[in-house]
Design a protein around this nucleic acid. Structure first.
Lengths: 155, 155
DNA sequence: TATAGTTATTTGTACATGCAAATAGATTGA
DNA sequence: TCAATCTATTTGCATGTACAAATAACTATA
């Protein structure tokens, strides 16, 4: 029998016939611990480095890209964000002088977002704290095994 | 040696000294697949039932509560939402007539959010679709093993 | 090469959420 | 009992994001 499809029925209550699969229940718990961890990470970045979580991840991705630059669309897919969200995020990054926009020579529609020196320095300062906070948060929320399964991934 | 602390160094690139732990990398992938699944669930609920994800989860939690009611604070902690967010969410639910507010007799500050018949019907109609969509999405994104580890949880 | 269709980015708008302050009611201690 | 403190909820405000439309530029085809 597939335990995953078994339903929870709380017979001890009179009212309501609450039916919720174990799957939904586990899912809800999962997204809550994940949200808690993301909140922890966000706080660390904001408090210690004045960076939002997406902003941090953007400059992190840029730093690992050839020439430290990426087109808006590429950035969007790396961060799993809407194009318009990225457009506004890059606006923020540019205001903070962590990146600059550069026109794409062979496609005049295209825009490169390029990491600046200031951006690189900010990343280098934030990264250790981010990594440490992630490690701690995963442990505190008992989530180490979550990543374990994904370490075995091919890609 | 602890594989989790090993770092990825892309020596094939000239510029940038990209350092990112496997942990961070896995974490980013994890939150992306989870966001994808949440988006899938949200679309199903919105398209088929005119419900937001949080709204759905609110009435689901209410339906499993004694007398189908919960105080704002309790609802907030069940949904892992800010009190003010819940206040505004309940406002939405009430506009849709899925819940009603009821004053708490023994604490005049307190407010109960109570599921209405309409709310219960909406939930009963949405729940199968939600459960099915979750099952499909988990499979499509190759995430079944994610919940597997959490099924063994005590609480 | 001109036109139609496609792609990249930005902009207008809406919305869910969080933080902090305001408000109202409960609780505690002198 | 009254004053100070604490708790529950709501409200003002800011922000990050998504969707859809607008704009600009590229591509393909007739």
């Amino acid at each position: 029998m597939d335990i995953h499809t078994k339903e929870v029925r709380l017979t001890s209550q009179q009212e309501s016939v609450p039916i919720m699969s174990k799957r939904s229940d586990s899912w809800l718990k999962l997204i809550h611990v994940i949200a808690n961890i993301e909140t922890d990470l966000g706080k660390v970045l904001q408090d210690k480095h004045g960076l939002g979580l997406s902003d941090y991840r953007a400059i992190e991705v840029l730093s690992r890209s050839p020439s430290c630059e990426l087109r808006m669309q590429e950035l969007a897919s790396h961060l799993r964000l809407n194009q318009s969200s990225v457009s506004r995020m890059v606006e923020r990054l540019e205001r903070s002088e962590l990146t600059v926009r550069d026109l794409c020579p062979d496609d005049k529609r295209g825009v490169y977002t390029v990491l600046t020196d200031k951006g690189r320095l900010r990343l280098e300062s934030a990264q250790p704290d981010y990594e440490a906070a992630l490690k701690v948060a995963l442990k505190e929320h008992g989530c180490e095994e979550l990543l374990a399964s994904r370490f075995t991934q091919i890609s």
